[in-house]
């Protein structure tokens, strides 16, 4: 970890407090996409931002919002650069970010032990195990979860907290989310997929 100057820490705080344009309850800092702020001279600043997904269309809106926030804070020139390495992972979302996602009605991604996905072992074609008690977020959860080397807890319904939920679609309103349904309260909900 590079030591930040007091000014850089202050600007990181300002840039980090910008809200995600598509999930306007979490800040960029809680989302873990803000990598660094470098002060080149007193009023010229470089910001490093990493995308959640390679094709995430929110990056441009995030960059503009960061520029706006830093300008408002008195920084004259702001350059936002997109960096790919190290790759962002849902494990970079802070505990506070997860809590806010849940409150917003989105099941947060589960924290994984291993980082990299490997070969996929597939189960049956059903999207839900016949045996609901063994479900524990099976379907995609078990397949991809096992593939990602994860010991995963069940995906809980963000509305009622039930662990009895099923996958409706692997891709939802954005690439980073899957669509699920709670079998207890019957509400559909988004799940921020583990990446």
């Amino acid at each position: 970890m590079v030591t930040l100057t007091p000014l850089e820490a202050e600007l990181l705080e300002v840039a980090g407090s910008v809200l995600d344009p598509e999930l306007p309850v979490v800040t960029l800092r809680e989302l873990g996409v803000l990598r660094a702020v470098h002060v080149r001279d007193t009023d010229t600043v470089d910001v490093e931002l990493t995308p959640t997904y390679t094709g995430c269309p929110a990056v441009e809106a995030m960059s503009l919002d960061i520029e706006r926030a830093l300008h408002a804070h008195g920084v004259r020139e702001v350059t936002v650069r997109t960096v790919l390495s190290p790759a962002w992972s849902t494990d970079d979302i802070s505990a506070e970010g997860r809590r806010k996602l849940r409150e917003f009605g989105i099941a947060p991604p589960r924290v994984r032990k291993a980082a990299e996905p490997v070969g996929i072992t597939l189960g049956p074609t059903r999207t839900r195990d016949a045996d609901a008690s063994a479900d524990m977020g099976a379907d995609m959860g078990a397949d991809m979860g096992a593939a990602m080397g994860a010991a995963l807890e069940p995906i809980l319904c963000p509305h009622c907290g039930s662990a009895d939920t099923e996958l409706l679609s692997r891709f939802s309103s954005t690439a980073c989310k899957a669509l699920r349904r709670c079998l207890a309260c019957r509400e559909p909900f988004d799940h921020f997929k583990e990446l």
């Binding site: 997904y53 390679t54 790919l84 390495s85 962002w88 597939l122 074609t125 991809m144 593939a147």
Partner: peptide, 25 residues
């Protein structure tokens, strides 16, 4: 290509899973 590949491989894992599930179905 290492940086892009490390990022994209995780996304493509979902594409592959999607295709395999549909092939089975």
């Amino acid at each position: 290509f290492a940086g892009l590949a490390a990022k994209a491989v995780k996304e493509v894992a979902y594409h592959r899973d999607h295709a395999e599930q549909w092939t089975l179905r």
